[in-house]
């Protein structure tokens, strides 16, 4: 049974005239790594808010069809029930950090689950270690740089050991190397722990090679769904999606009449060109 399932689902925020997500039919299996992208306002964030029940519990509005997460219907599930299963990392870490030390911040979630002290300690160490912030444990989150703060936010969510990890543009505040290390960490969580990952990103150069599946939304609808290589060979750039630059390059070369495939990584692009130039 799919872990996340939408059937004819639409959602219209109270006070809004048109639905922000419309006619969504989708099934995501446990353990998938899904990259969700599309232009601003396409419905990505609304989709993510459904996953942890912020819709409809926190953001009221009109719901049609069904949306199920881990077997629970979001129209009836309680936010605190979904919060245990679905961890959410927001774009701006400042919006989710509040403690006076990194360690306290990471411990907050598991403390609220009422776990034994030892287990809390173990989870906090594990989560800090995974994202590489153990040395920051005594620092106040507000003193840290944007990138470090995002790592704290991710650790605090991981400490809840969620089944689904939703990350809404988690790397936008990070320098490229930190972004890469965060994305690789996420890929590791997906591979080793089998955690389902829903990653919202505009920057696809780093993320597209890690994901099993890409969803592209536009104007509230899911318009493309499939394996990254297949999707990026299509007209994804017309939807305002920031393709990896080597992919863009080969799309342009194809327009020039050179139809030699569409790579999604530098290595692939290099091999294709080398083949032509040898």
């Amino acid at each position: 049974m799919p872990q996340i399932k939408a059937e004819g689902f639409s959602f219209t925020y109270s006070g809004s005239k048109s639905p922000s997500v419309r006619d969504l039919d989708l099934a995501i299996e446990r353990g998938e790594f899904v990259l969700l992208t599309g232009p601003s306002g396409c419905g990505k964030t609304t989709f993510c808010r459904c996953l942890n029940g912020l819709i409809p519990n926190f953001y009221p509005g009109h719901l049609e069809g069904r949306f199920e997460v881990c077997g629970m219907d979001i129209a009836r599930a309680k936010t605190y029930e979904l919060a245990k299963l679905v961890g959410h990392v927001f774009q701006n870490p400042e919006n989710q950090l509040f403690s006076l030390s990194v360690e306290r911040e990471v411990a907050f979630g598991p403390e609220n689950l009422g776990l034994p002290r030892e287990e809390i300690r173990e989870r906090v160490e594990w989560a800090m270690e995974l994202v590489g912030i153990s040395d920051l444990r005594d620092r106040a989150p507000y003193e840290l740089s944007g990138g470090q703060q995002q790592k704290v936010a991710i650790a605090s969510v991981l400490a809840m050991r969620p089944e689904v990890l939703v990350l809404d543009e988690p790397t936008s505040f990070l320098d490229p190397k930190s972004a890469k290390s965060i994305l690789e960490t996420i890929a590791k969580l997906n591979e080793e722990l089998g955690m389902t990952v829903i990653l919202v990103e505009h920057r696809l150069d780093l993320a597209s090679r890690l994901a099993d599946r890409v969803l592209i939304m536009n104007e509230g609808r899911l318009v493309l769904d499939g394996e990254p290589r297949r999707i990026f060979g299509k007209a994804a750039h017309l939807l305002g999606v920031g393709l990896p630059k080597v992919t863009l390059l080969f799309q342009m070369l194809r327009e020039d009449g050179l139809d030699v495939g569409i790579p999604i990584t530098v290595e692939e692009a290099s091999a294709i060109l080398r083949g032509l130039l040898d």
């Binding site: 320098d175 490229p176 080597v246 530098v266 692009a269 290099s270 040898d278």
Partner: peptide, 21 residues
Amino acid sequence: RASLIRPQISELADSLSDKGL
């Protein structure tokens, strides 16, 4: 050194500099 990653196109050009790129 500045924790950046080169643009993809720069990495590509580098990998093919022996071919005249």
